[in-house]
């Protein structure tokens, strides 16, 4: 049954790397082309939204949606593609967890607008004019998407069938998924259960071959501050590595390049808060001091201040999917602003 399938790939709030990643499968792309029609892929094919709108529901077999949900357009397209697709894949860290764009949740829409249009060096905007959602131009009414206050993940707005994390997803994972699809299309094989992650179910330590000492650590080093021994566990060397808390499947590419894991694959299934679990782990392995009983909580705070930016360190890719999700403002702070 060599029925051709149709696939769509869309780019929400992201860097575009995911689109490129799809091309990283090299010559296999030809196989994909053989197997599938491209229904919608804005960076590769000239299809308009209205063309998609005109498609019958469920006529697209698979949509790979990358990027977070940052504005009303991202959400609109996500919903449209969901309606038109049989299978919706949350493709890449931004779609799955918010990713790097998700770090915008440390601020809010108002502050972003103000900074971008009023405060940057290149802004000359004496009237502090900000973009309007609707604008009456001589040519008629122009409309811009609404920027959201909070960055969302794809599954915050639509039902997602599969998740393929990674920044961008590793070629091996894309191939693995293509195999699944191919088998499904060509041989009628079953698809994995809904909600599955197209990745390893283990943590990165499972893929990382470095030697561990299982000793507590004394201090933190930034990767550039020491010569990292490529044979030894990053944490043992005092380099913060999110590997123990992070889903495997990437092939430990960063570690193979002698760089620590920053957590783009997100947590494993049993963990709710990626950053919180790594924060606890890291704090736990700081050595107990000889004079521990004489240390005050301020001393401990100083000790832990070696970790400069906990939020950016532990939630670099997962803030919108964390328990707290976004930065908030205490009422006292609001008054002082």
């Amino acid at each position: 049954m060599a029925k051709k399938v149709s696939i769509a790939q869309y780019w929400g709030a992201g860097c575009g790397g995911c689109d490129v990643a799809l091309l990283d499968i090299d010559e296999r792309i030809l196989g994909v082309a053989e197997m599938a029609d491209i229904a919608f892929w804005p960076i590769a094919v000239d299809t308009k939204l209205k063309d998609v709108e005109a498609m019958p529901d469920k006529s697209i077999t698979i949509t790979l949606y990358n990027g977070a949900i940052r504005n009303s357009e991202n959400e609109h397209v996500a919903k449209l593609l969901r309606q038109k697709s049989q299978i919706m894949v949350s493709f890449g860290s931004c779609a799955c967890y918010g990713g790097i764009p998700g770090l915008a949740n440390v601020t809010n829409k108002k502050a972003i607008m103000d900074y971008v249009y009023n405060k940057t060096f290149s802004s000359i905007n004496p009237d502090e004019t900000l973009p309007q959602v609707k604008y009456q131009a001589p040519e008629g009414e122009l409309e811009l998407p609404v920027l959201y206050d909070t960055v969302l993940t794809l599954d915050d707005v639509v039902d997602v069938d599969y998740y393929m994390p990674g920044c961008p997803p590793a070629v091996s994972l894309i191939n693995e998924f293509l195999d699944i699809v191919e088998k499904h299309v060509k041989e009628g094989a079953d698809l994995p259960p809904k909600g599955s992650f197209i990745a390893s179910q283990k943590t990165l330590c499972d893929e990382c071959g470095r030697e561990k000492s299982y000793e507590p650590i004394d201090r933190i080093y930034l990767p550039h501050e020491i010569d990292i021994d490529p044979e030894k566990c990053m944490l043992d060397q005092g380099v913060i590595c999110l590997g123990p808390a992070t889903r495997a499947g990437c092939g430990a590419q960063c570690l193979n390049a002698n760089q620590p894991c920053r957590g783009c694959m997100g947590p494993t299934a049993a963990v709710e808060d990626h950053g919180g679990s790594m924060l606890s782990a890291l704090a736990s392995i700081f050595r107990t001091a000889d004079n521990e009983t004489h240390l005050s909580e301020d001393d401990i705070l100083k000790m832990m201040s070696e970790i400069k930016d906990p939020l950016g360190t532990f939630y670099a890719f997962t803030m919108p999917k964390s328990i707290i999700k976004r930065k908030v403002t205490e009422r006292k702070a609001e008054v002082s602003e």
Partner: peptide
Amino acid sequence: DLCDGCGICEPVCEYKAITITENPKNPEKK
């Protein structure tokens, strides 16, 4: 099923009750 032998727990235990061992199902893993 969930443990990959990262070893964070071992130095945390004051009673030396935790050891990181070979995974019986896969001796290459911990």
